[in-house]
């Protein structure tokens, strides 16, 4: 049997230097406590580990020290030991979990569309005035930054295109390119991405916080539908403001293009206007607004889904918000790519 003579003070420093060798060994061990006068948490922990891993005996131990060791004795629940589950079980579990997530996401979408349309007439409306407030917050609040950014994108697009077009001597197409590019693609996409970052994240954070503070539970026990109460006002507010924001974003981007055309390329204002009018196609405009409407639903849907998914503590709110923004932008870009096949 291995015998260890312990020093006067079993403290952290002694444990740091000596524990490696002691713990590495196997087989029975005898701890000689004859000289020991004090023991600290590190020393106690060492004895506890030895007790579990090796057959351990102690000798000449003082009562107070023994009490100290035993009073912090944890309960070892052997059933708790994590065993790694077999490969296929893990695959199955993860598949099943993803399936459940998908079902939750789908049910949020279905409920949002149902309570936002047909279900609206089913229950008493108790939140008059909330719609205006939400429109102000979700739409108007994002207007300034959206206009500024699309203007700059219009400028950048025009500058880059002007250089290329000049090489072919095709300057006059600059306006056509900017106008169509903005209407068909960049206006709706930029507006959606900015609102995803702003409105989508705010939606997730609000719902997640409500979830964490048991407010969603309280709503349910009071017989209210949480989707109807929280999501539907946002759904309507964004459906109403998103097309407006998009139209203004398009205009702002086109304006950026005009500025470049006038100052850098030196096109005459009259010519710019002619080209502009020629290239505004009503069908494109309408489709683009419809597209922005779909984007607005995606923003609210993904934003709420990530909010409702949260369970547990406050730190999850931040994580959910980050995930939500990334996923919303991803979903929007995918949707945009799909749209581009249709027109």
């Amino acid at each position: 049997m291995e015998v260890i003579h312990l020093p006067k003070d079993i403290d952290r420093h002694w444990v740091e230097t000596s524990s490696g060798a002691i713990l590495a060994g196997t087989g029975p061990i005898l701890l000689d406590f004859k000289d020991v006068e004090s023991i600290d948490s590190a020393g106690i922990a060492l004895v506890h580990i030895l007790e579990r891993t090796r057959s351990t005996e102690v000798e000449s131990i003082r009562r107070p020290i023994l009490d100290q060791i035993e009073s912090t004795q944890q309960e070892i629940d052997s059933s708790k030991k994590q065993t790694k589950s077999p490969f296929f079980e893990r695959i199955g579990t993860s598949f099943y979990n993803n399936f459940c997530e998908f079902r939750i996401a789908l049910s949020v979408l279905v409920e949002m569309l149902y309570w936002g349309t047909i279900g609206m007439f089913e229950r008493r409306d108790f939140r008059k005035g909330i719609l205006g407030e939400q429109m102000y917050h979700l739409g108007y609040g994002a207007l300034g930054i959206t206009l500024a950014l699309t203007f700059l994108i219009g400028v950048a697009l025009a500058v880059q295109s002007a250089i290329q077009l000049k090489a072919f001597g095709a300057d006059v197409f600059l306006i056509a390119l900017v106008v169509q590019g903005m209407i068909r693609e960049l206006g709706p996409l930029m507006a959606a991405i900015i609102l995803a970052g702003r409105t989508g994240s705010a939606t997730t954070a609000e719902i997640a916080t409500m979830k964490v503070q048991e407010e969603v539970d309280a709503l349910k026990t009071m017989g209210l539908n949480e989707i109807q109460f929280i999501v539907v006002p946002k759904f309507w507010a964004l459906s109403a403001t998103m097309p407006l924001v998009t139209v203004m974003a398009i205009m702002s981007g086109i304006l950026g293009g005009f500025v470049v055309a006038f100052t850098m390329v030196g096109m005459a204002p009259q010519m710019i206007m002619d080209e502009f009018v020629k290239n505004i196609i009503v069908k494109d405009f309408v489709l683009s607004i419809l597209k922005s409407l779909v984007f607005s639903w995606l923003i609210i849907w993904v934003g709420s889904y990530y909010g409702f998914r949260v369970s547990g503590g406050a730190e999850e709110v931040g994580r959910a918000t980050t995930q939500s923004v990334v996923s919303t932008i991803f979903v929007i870009v995918v949707a945009d790519a799909i749209f581009s096949f249709f027109y």
Partner: peptide, 15 residues
């Protein structure tokens, strides 16, 4: 006092 857990420590002697 707090409920003590059964110790598995084999105590040969105490001082």
């Amino acid at each position: 006092p707090a409920v003590k857990m059964q110790s598995k420590l084999i105590v040969r002697s105490t001082q």
